[in-house]
């Protein structure tokens, strides 16, 4: 009997979201009760901040076209990892030499540690991520166009 009622409740798709959200809330509550978690100190791609550098929060490499030293999971799989980290476009190189505040602009330009991770060492993540974007746009534009013949 009880199984029948449960199955009737979850077969109504309006109730799906409340059930799932409640399960998530309960699990997050359990996670809070089981704190503290261990934090491993030797992480991959560690962050170090040098306030004197013009590339302040993202200064990870030497001059462009040298190989920077970065901590990655499998160095033998990416023999050229570190070149992209050290690379600066001519524009951002000029900016870094004239001002102390190039800072986060490096994220907008090709080169830097984030491009190294996103394109090179964890490139497959980015490929899957753009595929998700692509599929979502395909759904949205198909439905949009179907609405206006």
């Amino acid at each position: 009997m009880i199984i029948q009622r449960i199955s009737r409740f979850i077969s109504n798709f309006e109730n799906l979201m409340p059930i799932f959200a409640a399960a998530c809330a309960v699990l997050a509550g359990i996670a809070i009760l089981s704190l503290p978690f261990v934090y491993t100190e030797d992480q991959l791609y560690p962050k170090n901040i040098d306030r004197e550098s013009p590339l302040d929060p993202y200064d990870r490499g030497g001059p462009p076209f040298t190989q920077a030293d970065i901590v990655l999971q499998y160095p033998e799989n990416s023999p050229t990892a570190g070149f992209v980290t050290a690379y600066l476009t001519p524009f951002s190189w000029a900016l870094a030499n004239t001002t102390l505040h190039t800072g986060t602009t490096i994220v907008g330009h090709p080169g830097g540690i984030l491009d190294e991770i996103l394109y090179n060492t964890r490139g497959l993540d980015t490929v899957v991520e753009t595929t998700i974007l692509f599929i979502a746009f395909a759904i949205a534009s198909y439905i949009f166009r179907k609405g206006s013949p």
Binding site: L16, F20, C24, L27, A28, T40, Q43
Partner: peptide, 26 residues
């Protein structure tokens, strides 16, 4: 409704993966 659940499902999914990275370092 199913899409809403799928979207909410990314929260425990990515959150779990991030805590794995923080606790083990890999």
């Amino acid at each position: 409704q199913y899409g809403l659940v799928a979207l909410a499902g990314t929260v425990p999914l990515f959150g779990g993966a991030a805590i794995v990275a923080a606790t083990t370092g890999t």
